[in-house]
Design a protein around this nucleic acid. Sequence first.
DNA 1: AAGACGAAAGTGGTTGA
DNA 2: TCAACAACTTTCGTCTT
Length: 301
Amino acid sequence: MQIKCPECGCDRLIRDYAASEIVCMACGFVIEEKIADSGPEWRAFDLEQRAKRRRVGAPLTFTIHDKGLSTMIDWRNKDTYGKNLSPSQRAQIYRLRKWQRRSRVSDATERNLAFALSSISRVCASMNLPRNILETASVIYRRAVKKRLTKGRSILSIVAASVYMACRKCMVARTLDEVTYASGMGRTEIGKSYRFMVKELRIFVPPSAPSYYISRFTNNLDLTSGAETIALHIMRVAKKMRLTSGRAPLGIAAGAVYIASVIISERRTQREVAEVAGVTEVTIRNRYKELVESLDFTVRL
DNA sequence: AAGACGAAAGTGGTTGA
DNA sequence: TCAACAACTTTCGTCTT
């Protein structure tokens, strides 16, 4: 059965067994799917067979500037046994190194790409993001470079925007503030780059629904799972009543979580909820007042 | 004493001429 | 490009538990 990309509908997918996921070659969407087979495809009965049948090479990845296909040539003039090379071998290695230098990271674009991709890895690592986000962000960045969107913008702001966009695309709830913190860039600048990229790359980004944040908030507040259920229910009803339009998703999610904590009598202070949600108490108060007013339930305080 | 509440002024981003 | 605007924040005084 042929799998199609849910994003663009094409079937140009590559499998990355190491990360057990499938990446769309056309739009870069990383399909989160567990691929069963990550080992050799043949059984090996002895060492010789094992050596013959083992598949070689690291999996293709977008996170290294040359997709991991390069060969590294050591700078030392030693062979694998640590012996010095003969003069003729040395001359050969010298020529190889020269051409490798020229062909790989010699021009500025490649160097920038290498720098950007390592930055993406760093940001993702410090945010504890799963690998598919890293891959998606890398693909987004490559596309941005290809369309020359990096002109006049700092590489790091595009990097941060790519990571943020990857989170949104893969429905991983991370706020712009968290990306701002991890990347060390200005919030506004990242936001600008992000909006610019959404427009220019025509990448479909699902609108961030408040419900994505709820499980994170309830977890961070050490609430039992009942709170999450109730908060999600509140969100559903609120959405039906068109209470969510025009409001910041974060504020609504925070309000819903606050109400839920009160309902299941595991009350958290507005201050605590505000802390994990990254909004102020005032915003929580406003949202929660609106929610309580319009939703037809009573909150016993 | 801590938390909740609300008014008022300030801030950053969007929109529309 | 600029002003109006909505949403949100900051600050602070007051009330409630």
